[in-house]
Every structure is written in C-alpha cells, then in structure tokens.
Write a protein that binds this DNA or RNA. Structure first.
Length: 592
DNA sequence: GCCGTTTTCGGCCCGACTGTTTTCAGTCG
C-alpha cells in the first residue's frame, strides 16, 4: 500500500461525498489529505512503522489518521465502501464533464436514473432531459459538446505545445489597442509538467473590449464564456485558453491570483484575513482602501512575505519557509556548466560528435558528456564494447583540438532486468562516467524493479541513474519503484540521479527532486539531446528542478569540470565491501 | 473533517459568468 493508493481512496471518497451533497469543507478535507499524501515524499506506511503520529501531518486529524491506519493495515476504507453502496457506479464519471457538478449529477441520477455518459447523451437526444429542472437547451448543448470533446481529447498538454500556444496568444494580445501588459499565468507559469489550459492575464485601459476580439479570433472553435473582463475559448487544437482583464493597478494581484495554485491562494487569502485585510484579484484591501496589487511583490510584501517564485506556489510549505527566511535560491538555466547525457550519430542521435561538442561549447559550457546507447538497445544502434572503444579514441582526439572545453567519455548503458549492466566492466572502467538507464521490462513488480536499480547502482563504475522512473508523460506510467530506497542508495554509494529534461519525460519529477534534495543527493539536469536543438530541453528541466526547490548547490552539472571530476571519482571510491562487482582497485576499509 | 496565544465551536477564499430560478443557484477557476 503506497501513498498514492491511500490518496486515490480519499479522492474517491471526496467525489462520492460531493454527489451526496456533503459539506464542502468535509470534501475539501479529503481532497487536501489526498494531495498532501501525494506530495509527502515519504510513505505513510514507513511513518507508521517508525511509530510516528499521523495526525502530526498537515490536514490530518484523528479521524483521517485512523482511516489511513485502517487502509494501510487492511487495504480497505470502510467509508468508501459504504458510499459506493449508496451511489450507482458510473455516476462519479459525470462529475468529470464540464458543466456537470454535483447538483446536476444528482439531479440526472434521481430524475432519470442516469448513470453513464451514454445515458446522458440518450436523454438529450430523446428530449427527456428537457423536463429536468435546471437543464435548459444551452446547458444541454454544452454538456453534449463536453462529452464529445472528452472522448477525443487528451485533457492535459505537454509543456512545449502549451508554451507555443501561449506565445502566439501573447503576441496577438500585446498588439491589441488598450492592452498595456499581458502575461501567461496558471500552471504554465508554475511550470507544471503538463498544462490543462492556458491562463492569460492582461492589464487593460478602462473600457477595453479586448475580450470580445479575443473570443472572435481565428483559431477559436468554441466560446465557453465571454464577459467584459474575462473570456474562455477552445482552440482548434483542443486547448482551452482563458483571458482575464484587469486595470493596471490590479495587474499584480490578478497575476498572483491566476497563477495559483489554488491552495497557495487560499493560504494567502487566509493570511490576509488574519491581518484584517482582504485579498482578491483586484488587490489587497484594508476596508475599501487598496494597499497593494500593482505588482505581485507588493502583495507579498504587504502580507509580510518575500516574493515567492511561481514554481514554489504549490502549498508545499513555501509560505512557512518564506516566514522563516529559508526559501531556496532557485537554480537558473545559466548556472549549468555542462550537460551529462547526450547522443550522437554513433547511436540514435542526429548530429556528429564534433557538431554536438561545438554546439555545447557555443552555449558557454565547460563540458559535455557523450552518452550513446549500449548494444542492448538495437533499435538505437547501440554501441558494443568495440565500437565504444573506437568512440573513446575519437573523443580523445577531439579533446586534443578543443580549447577550454572538454568532451567527457560516457555511455547510457542499459540496466538489464536482473540489474546487471549491458557492457563489460573493463570498457566501462575506461569512461569518465557511466549513466545507467532502464529501457525494458518496465512492468516488473515494485520489489524486483527496485532491486534491479539498487544492484545496478552497486556496480563500481556506476555514476548516474538516468530517467529513474522511465515514465513517458501521457504514454507510459512510471515504473513501480521504491524511490526512497533508490535515493538513499545513491547517497550511500555517492552516486547521482538524473532529472531528464526531455518534455516527454521530466523524470525525476518535482516531488522526487525535492526528496533527493532533502536526502542530500545531487541531481544531473540533463537534456538527453539527440541533436543540437535538443539542448533547448534544459529549460523544461530547470522548471521542474525549481518546482523541486533545487538550488545551484543541489545540481551536479553546476560544478566546474574539476569539481565534477572529483565527485564522479567519488562514486568509485565509496564502493562498499562485499559488492558483487569486480574490483579493479581495492580500496582499503578503515579499521574500527 | 481540520484547526486554534483572539477560538475546543464555529469558522473554513473570493469573484465572474451563465442560464432560466423573475432574484440567484450552479459551476468554474
């Protein structure tokens, strides 16, 4: 039983309570608890085994602590089973349709016995829904369209597409008369790994009619809402874009509000109330007088806080950290001094060794590691020991010619299902670094998958675990692994984990990055570039790293070449005794 | 259902837009 299982049960309870018309605060308590468990970074089961009190966790009181204990022990949540017995299966699905909330879902079920989306569409088609109070023609049409859209569309989009769409919208809005300033907010600004819709905030002159033209722009297929200050549209590519317009003096407050997260806003507003103030998207008010709001910083300052970076606004302790003056100094792209995971034409890359090196050098870096695939990945034309040896010679020759830049010799070696590495030890020991990765047997049971990684990390040449969970966003779920054990193993071994910056991977994710930071394990933020353009992926990786509270000191490839070499050498020197790996140089153990 | 040096009870963020409810509930963000 892992946190995600408990969280899923609590979310199900919240859905069902919603359908029953329970108190919104009770529902929120379950949702908050579910979210907290997902973000926690350590397993509740482990906490219980250590004898820790669960009700010390934020949002967990006596009741939820008891329920968590029961779920961990029995795998069951009695309340959930009871609620499920009261609500026909399928009705919960209705809540996922925009336009159907708990009241309408209940009305559908009670008046017409509707349980599924198909039932809804039939009832619309044969006119039965018209007789139900609260379902006018427009509402029916909206619901019908939402159901169709849901069938076709993936609900969340990856960052590159979201950023491109946002950039296009921002460009056209900036050119609108009456628009003084416009910026993207929402989860895009917080750099979440996927984005559900795009939120734009504009400062406009009084009387601006920009929402009207925004909703009538080419590319808009559906107008969900349109008023004088806000409009919501769906574009032909399926993406929803929301525009909110405010006067210039409210721009900061509006940006703050529409950047979220929702829970961060709730916490800020509560803090305002505690100080006898009121915070909304127009500003921070004492009575009727606005005391802040033109910039985000002005609002934070008036609430006694330093500016909290958007990536931290997830209600994961950032406000408390701000009050204690221990907000992290977040990493930036220009802090990187090199890239430790790249490919060339020798395996499945598109550019030559020399071209990649030149592009990396042009970025102002000190180094770049070439880490082509190993032979197991035949699809990628992976290197066997012989071809790798040739590549090593070519890199040596290239380094002779380069000035002020070094190509490090590496490999992205397959971690085989038994945890062994896909190349012989003698060739691996000639490399500057060995990046290990899983590219097969993704569905091993949790225990075996974890053991596989731990065994690989015990190899004397192992340096960095690449894309540790092997997830592909929207395509492949993360492997089942005990991340806490993997992180602790890395600390023990002195080796490192990767934050793969490919926008389809972003692996480790934000929460896992923070776990690694908390355990003192450095991360390699790596582009996994397969051509020179892919170095641009790093900005997505930086976004996730910032969400994981990482500073420059938490990242391996902010180090100078000299410091990096020392750290990489440490992965070998800390080899524990009794390892299954072949020892080339035996390190004497200190006597007790 | 949680939480608390103003509270162990009575709070719990706040506003826009839509539709059909002739004065506001439902939904969303």
């Amino acid at each position: 039983m892992v946190n995600a299982d408990v969280a899923a049960m609590f979310n199900d309870v919240a859905d069902l309570l919603e359908l029953q018309g329970a108190s919104v605060f009770r529902i929120r308590a379950y949702r908050n608890a579910a979210r907290m468990l997902g973000d926690l970074g350590q397993s509740v089961q482990a906490l219980m085994e250590q004898g820790k009190d669960l009700d010390a966790l934020p949002g967990i009181g006596a009741d939820l602590a008891q329920k968590i204990t029961t779920i961990v022990h029995t795998g069951k949540c009695p309340l959930l089973e009871q609620l499920r017995a009261q609500v026909p299966p399928g009705v919960v699905e209705l809540l996922r349709i925009p336009g159907i909330g708990p009241r309408r879902a209940r009305a559908l079920q009670q008046a017409l016995g509707i349980r599924t989306l198909e039932d809804v569409q039939r009832a619309i088609a044969d006119g039965r829904l018209r007789k139900v109070r609260g379902f006018g023609l427009k509402t029916q049409q909206r619901i019908s369209e939402s159901i169709t859209a849901r069938r076709q569309a993936d609900q969340r989009f990856r960052l590159p597409m979201a950023m491109e769409v946002a950039a296009t919208q921002l460009a056209s809005l900036s050119a609108e008369p009456g628009v003084l300033q416009v910026q993207a907010a929402g989860s895009l600004r917080r750099r979440r790994d996927t984005v559900g819709d795009i939120d734009l905030v504009a400062a406009v002159r009084p009387g601006s009619t920009v929402t009207r033209r925004f909703a009538a722009a080419p590319g808009v297929t559906t107008v969900l809402a349109k008023g004088p200050t806000r409009a919501s549209v769906v574009l032909a590519n399926g993406m929803q874009v929301d525009l909110r317009c405010v006067p210039a003096e409210s721009f900061g407050a509006a940006l703050l509000y529409f950047t979220g997260s929702k829970n961060h806003n709730i916490a800020l507003r509560q803090r305002a109330l505690d100080a006898g103030l009121k915070l909304n998207e127009y500003g921070l008010y004492r009575g009727d007088r606005r005391i802040a709001g033109d910039t985000e910083a002005s609002v934070y300052e008036a609430l006694g806080l330093p500016l909290i970076e958007p990536e931290l606004r997830e209600s994961r302790g950032e406000i408390e950290a701000a009050l204690d003056h221990r907000l992290p100094d977040l990493i930036t792209l220009d802090a990187l001094k090199g890239d430790l995971h790249t490919h060339t034409r020798d395996s499945d890359g598109g550019d030559t060794l020399a071209t990649m090196a030149q592009a990396a050098r042009t970025r102002g870096w000190e180094y770049m590691a070439v880490t082509d695939h190993s032979s197991r990945l035949a699809l990628a034309h992976g290197l066997d020991a012989g071809r790798l040896a040739q590549q090593i010679d070519r890199i040596d020759a290239l380094n002779e010619r380069l000035r002020g830049f070094v190509v490090l010799k590496g490999i992205e070696v397959d971690i085989l299902p038994d945890g062994s590495l896909d190349l012989p030890d003698d060739i691996l020991s000639r490399l500057d670094l060995v990046v290990g990765a899983v590219h097969s047997a993704f569905d091993l049971p949790r225990e075996r998958q974890t053991d596989r990684l731990l065994r690989a990390m015990d190899h004397r040449s192992f340096s960095i675990l690449a894309h540790p969970t092997a997830r592909l966003i929207g395509d492949r779920a993360p492997c089942e692994i005990d991340l806490q054990r993997v992180i602790r193993k890395a600390r023990e071994r002195g080796c490192f984990l990767e934050l793969n910056a490919q926008p389809t991977r972003l692996d480790l994710n934000d929460v896992a990055c923070r776990m690694a930071k908390d355990e003192g394990v450095l991360l390699s933020i790596a582009s996994d570039a397969h051509n020179t353009l892919d170095f641009e992926h790093l900005r997505y990786g930086i976004g996730q790293a910032r969400r994981g509270w990482l500073g420059p000191g938490d990242v391996l490839n902010t180090r100078s070449l000299e410091a990096l070499r020392t750290l990489l050498a440490g992965t070998i020197e800390k080899l524990p005794s009794g390892s299954s790996c072949r020892a080339v140089t035996q390190v004497p153990l200190p006597m007790p």
